[in-house]
């Protein structure tokens, strides 16, 4: 049986750990709040841009290279992960899904490339020996559009110049504070633009093609930005949940240890009394 001092040390260190995890849980909770607000602030922009894209697509016969499916020679996978760990299954869920999709679709590493947002994803795919064309790491906790513009611009640009022929995006969708779902979304080509019902017919200045030229890259970029915001909210939620269960586990451990500590203390006292009584008896 462990000595009293050993148990005491373990209790102290577990308590310290639980203090840290509790603090991290609260930090994540407040970050989650902010992230949710950011995601909400983005909604009007996204809705509007979708609206206009849909009404242009419906109102004219114009097509654009970004809306056209072409024979796929190379696929790009845009994977949104976190930079650090301590987020429970957040990263492993995504990476597992992506790996499963890749294994199912491709036989060689030459058929696809990876675009990675987040250090964890980049490191993972580099270890697998896959081609990482672009990566964005060390994003702030609350990214603004300017922070991710670099990678979205490149992701869309490389589709336009023919580096790859389709782009799939993987991220954790924030369903609730305790549930995040791995989501797969086809970003490019933009094939799923649905015309909404009540749309005004617009005049285009200078022309519908010129508008699409500006609008579609912006639309694709904002799809990616939306996913990054969603992913960030999920990351903070996942981190909060992970830290909460760590704190709970630490509390359980402390309770168990306190019980055995008291038991050991009781045993030691009983033994001392027995020894004293025995000693006294021997003197008589």
């Amino acid at each position: 049986m462990a000595s009293l001092r050993d148990i005491k040390n373990r209790i102290t260190s577990t308590k310290k750990t639980s203090q840290i995890t509790r603090a991290m849980q609260m930090v994540s909770a407040s970050k989650l709040n902010r992230a949710e607000m950011n995601a909400k602030a983005f909604v009007p922009y996204m809705e509007k841009i979708q609206d206009v894209v849909a009404s242009i697509a419906a109102g004219s016969n114009e097509t654009h290279a970004m809306m056209m499916t072409r024979p796929v020679q190379k696929t790009a996978y845009l994977v949104i992960t976190s930079d650090r760990g301590l987020v429970g299954g957040y990263n492993s869920n995504i990476l597992r899904t992506v790996m499963a999709r890749i294994n199912e679709r491709h036989t060689s590493n030459d058929e696809f490339v990876i675009l990675s947002v987040g250090r964890k994803g980049r490191d993972f795919f580099a270890k697998q020996g896959m081609t990482i064309l672009e990566s964005a790491i060390a994003l702030p906790d609350h990214p603004t559009f300017a922070d991710i513009k670099e990678i979205t611009r490149k992701a869309v640009g490389m589709f336009s110049d023919g580096t790859y022929d389709e782009v799939y995006m993987y991220y954790n969708h924030f369903a609730s504070a305790i549930q995040q779902d791995v989501t797969e979304k086809k970003v490019l080509p933009l094939t799923d633009i649905q015309a909404t019902g009540a749309t005004a017919s617009y005049e285009f200045d200078p022309s519908a093609e010129a508008i699409l030229e500006v609008l579609l890259p912006q639309y694709a970029e904002s799809l990616i930005f939306g996913a990054v915001l969603d992913g960030k909210a999920s990351e903070h939620a996942a981190s909060m949940t992970a830290m909460k269960s760590a704190t709970d586990n630490a509390t359980d451990l402390i309770n168990g240890l306190t019980l055995s500590y008291n038991r050991a203390r009781q045993a030691a006292i009983t033994q001392e009394i027995t020894e004293i009584v025995g000693g006294a008896a021997a003197l008589e």
Binding site: I56, D205, P206, A210, L215
Partner: peptide, 19 residues
């Protein structure tokens, strides 16, 4: 300022999209 030049919009303008 649009791609083709300055554009002034008053109430009642016809529906338009411009970069």
């Amino acid at each position: 300022v649009t791609a083709t030049g300055e554009m002034g919009i008053l109430p009642g303008h016809i529906p338009t999209v411009a970069p």
